[in-house]
């Protein structure tokens, strides 16, 4: 499997995401935000955490308009896979590749700590390594992770089984405890928690590893 990890000025989890893909067995290309095309043969685009463009204007808003996001949109439109973590999730909502928006945390503070998530669906390449209802521990680290979507969007997300993860104990005010959502074709996942930070024993847990392993497996056979 060949993964691309986008690098915006201010991305700071780009290396972490690349390492997680590599440890699971993927080949990784880092792709600069000023590029207009993705390398040939990319199976999945990773949009890493961090503070793209300093989080100025709105988190993810400037990145969503960067040259590489044109290529990202093309990739997704062709049915390609994409994984946005933290700031990457914010970029995906700003590009409208995923519905909803991430607002400032309800307590108005940055929060970094491990949280428990409930896997809401195993029906995606990202979550196939988990079982529905399984609880996993993965860290969050964000100031703006308070997910919001309008009622009709929430209804669609629920009806189509597109909520990937919910917080067991809501840390940030997210509507319906939502921590991650899937696109309609289930090939784009955005999530605030960082699976790449819980992907090897040295991290104190490996619950995030299953996502990368499942992706490799699912995409290799796709």
């Amino acid at each position: 499997m060949h993964a691309a990890v986008l690098v915006f000025p201010g991305s700071n989890c780009d290396r972490d995401l690349a390492v997680a893909f590599e440890k699971a067995g993927a080949r990784v290309s880092m792709v600069w935000h000023k590029d207009t095309v993705l390398p040939d043969g990319i199976d999945i685009v990773g949009i890493p955490g961090g503070f793209s463009y300093g989080d100025y204007l709105r988190c993810g808003a400037i990145a969503a308009n960067s040259p590489i996001c044109g290529a990202l949109r093309g990739h997704v439109d062709r049915g390609g896979f994409a994984l946005g973590i933290c700031n990457g999730f914010q970029v995906l909502t700003e590009t409208r590749l995923l519905p909803g928006a991430l607002r400032r945390n309800a307590n108005l503070k940055y929060i970094c700590k491990p949280v428990d998530l409930r896997v809401e669906t195993a029906d995606s390449a990202f979550t196939a390594g988990y079982s529905e209802g399984q609880e996993i521990t993965v860290p969050i680290a964000h100031h703006d992770g308070n997910y919001f979507a309008a009622d009709d969007t929430l209804r669609a997300l629920n009806d189509q089984d597109r909520v990937a993860f919910r917080y067991v104990k809501n840390p940030n005010g997210s509507v319906e405890d939502i921590a991650g959502v899937l696109s309609e074709n289930r090939r784009v996942l955005g999530m605030m928690p960082h699976p790449e930070r819980m992907a090897e024993p040295a991290h104190g847990g490996t619950d995030g590893q299953a996502m990368f392993r499942a992706l490799i497996e699912q995409l290799a056979t796709a």
């Binding site: 290396r15 972490d16 970094c112 700590k113 680290a141 930070r197």
Partner: peptide
């Protein structure tokens, strides 16, 4: 310290 990112760089 929960207001600080204690885990970025994943090391």
């Amino acid at each position: 310290y929960e207001q600080y990112d204690t885990m970025v760089m994943a090391d």
